[in-house]
Design a protein around this nucleic acid. Sequence first.
DNA 1: GATCATCGGCAACTTACGTCA
DNA 2: CATGACGTAAGTTGCCGATGA
Length: 219
Amino acid sequence: MEKTECSEAENFGSVTTSLEPQATAKRKKAKSKNQRRFSDEQIRLLESIFEADSKLEPRRKVQVARELGLQPRQVAIWFQNRRARWKSKQIEQDFRTLRADYDNLASRFESLKEEKQSLLMQMQKLNELVGKPSQGLEGNIMVDGSRLQEELEPRGVIQSHKNNTSNDVGCHGDEIHELLSMAHVDASSLSPQDWHRFDPSILFDPSRFTSSHWLNFWT
DNA sequence: GATCATCGGCAACTTACGTCA
DNA sequence: CATGACGTAAGTTGCCGATGA
């Protein structure tokens, strides 16, 4: 690497270390004597250079220092501090963005949850309309090759729907068949009398009914 | 070519001071 | 006027890569 930096001695005429007893006093003196904020003009030029490139080539640093009447070391430190300030601001910005994204997602999650509840209620009402406990036929609904009842009952999925009654399928038949087929339910062997045996919660089980199924259904 | 010491740049953290409400 | 918060120039430390012996 090119070595063009000036020493501390060149800056303030003395080198101090934190181990020396008089170091702090010396530094204070040096600081109070020499430290001053850079002028607006100096800051303006430094900022414009920083905007173009946050790092300075050694040669460019010497050139800038000469233009501004500063030591190359001061220019280097200004750029170091400026990068640190930029990074700090960037982190704050990233945090705000992430938090906003999170808030949006959380809000959407809540509304989807409500929508799900609403749909479940609708499905339940539908089941009440189409299901009849007296006509309950065993074993016509297939899930992944096994009987839906055998599949779901041990898990407590099939509950009160079992005893619901109705024959009125109405115009929802096609959509329901489509949903059932997506859920790997053998809709061809499913008679309207058996629909009440189908538990809609399967449609919201991510392991059984993926987002792509929903996408297919809605599109 | 591998190894080691040295040096400078940098990031991260800290200090000291000036400014301002 | 004193004070605390904040911004900033500069110091400190540790790491890394380049370079030369």
